[in-house]
Design a protein around this nucleic acid. Structure first.
Lengths: 217, 217
DNA sequence: TATATTTTTGACCAAATGGTTAAACTTTAT
DNA sequence: ATAAAGTTTAACCATTTGGTCAAAAATATA
């Protein structure tokens, strides 16, 4: 008998869109879709299985429980943000230039992962201690930014502001318009998605200017 | 036989903390507690009944379904914010003074209702059309603020800024630190609640200055 | 090719959950 | 005091839901 395994594998590779990647990865992607939109409490294992186009039992075969699968998604969500942020924070430029880059880069990541922030805020409210620990494990270090602001103040590059307030200001201005998009797009732009996208594009400059204006001596 | 009804009522009045107000109201208060913290998907009818100290059937007796009870809570949450905001917006003072008052008043309401914003953002993401309609029914008019900003620009009171960006900036700076409190209090203040309260107090001034600095000519 | 191992599936289960109902209890009206 | 109306309760119900299991299918190994 002829061995069709190789042929099948070739088929699989060709039809990547349908049977793309291994099952474990497909589950994770489907779980991300569902968990990010519905949260832990609103997500259904069956819906994740449907989204992945596989049998529900496979979710447990690969991830054991809903909680474990959720944790994998939570980690993934964090990892979507970390690299971009770290590379900017570690770059060696003036603090004002760094703020420009941060706002630009951070808002880009937010636009590509619009469901992540509300998801994270929601879930941290539900189970703060455990999930904040995961943040630490994934290597989030707000201290890093705060120190940079402090040094910039000492060196006289910027006005003497509380670095914590400055950090929260920047995060607020970037994150809120994404988190509140379903509300604001309807209230301010008659639910015109293109118009709100344009608004968010403008916003990169607006936020940069807004922040820099507040810290220039 | 002696009529004990009057005596019972007196007891009820005395023990207001225990049997306070009528059942319908007690249910609404309990439902608010649970829905605001857990959201529609995470809330349990039994938990609400326990919180109210009554039988679960009474929830359905007074509010028919979980969905109806949720809607009542959603309306209530909006109403907690409206009066304060409206009174400030309608006051006849300079735009800079109005921003001061708005930030002060809005952040006070937020501190008294810290779970409302995340709750609303979460639920609007789940069912945007229906819930945004409720917002309109309750009389939210962002147009009101936008027009005031526009007029202030025309009269030359403030720099020519896009009123929508200005509005989102103010809302962001006020709302985000409350919504992200479970996260930020831990990351920036070692979970010291008093320290974060102090941070939020300072913030009223910081935000006011931050915003006014961005719009002064 | 035959055998062991891994992957996938459908049937099933127990607990949880929103909701119903009839009876008991309380209050009001007559 | 009695009947009527309103309120409260416990027992139930149907469905949903996370999870299990044994058998089937596919794959790897010998």
């Amino acid at each position: 008998m002829v061995n069709f395994i190789g042929f099948n594998q070739i088929l699989i590779i060709i039809c990547m869109t349908e049977k793309e990647q291994n099952t474990e990865e497909r589950i994770l992607i489907a779980a991300k879709q569902v968990f990010l939109r519905k949260g832990m409490a609103g997500a259904r294992m069956q819906e994740i299985a449907n989204e992945a186009g596989i049998n529900k039992s496979l979710l447990h075969y690969y991830y054991r429980s809903k909680d474990k699968l959720f944790l994998a998604v939570f980690r993934l969500a964090i990892q979507n943000f970390l690299p971009e942020i770290k590379s900017i924070l570690l770059s060696d430029v003036l603090v004002t230039e760094k703020i420009d880059r941060f706002v630009e880069g951070y808002m880009n990541v937010l636009l590509n992962n619009p469901f992540v922030p509300l998801f994270i805020l929601q879930e941290i409210q539900r189970d703060p201690d455990r999930l904040l620990n995961i943040f630490l494990e994934e290597g989030i270090q707000p201290q890093l930014i705060l120190e940079q602001f402090e040094r910039a103040v000492q060196k006289g590059e910027i006005k003497a502001v509380d670095p914590k307030h400055l950090l929260i200001n920047i995060l607020s201005l970037c994150i809120f318009p994404i988190v509140a998009r379903p509300m604001m797009q309807r209230m301010l732009y008659d639910n015109d998605s293109d118009a709100y996208n344009e608004f968010l594009r403008e916003r990169k400059k607006v936020v940069s200017e807004f922040v820099k204006n507040a810290i220039k001596k």
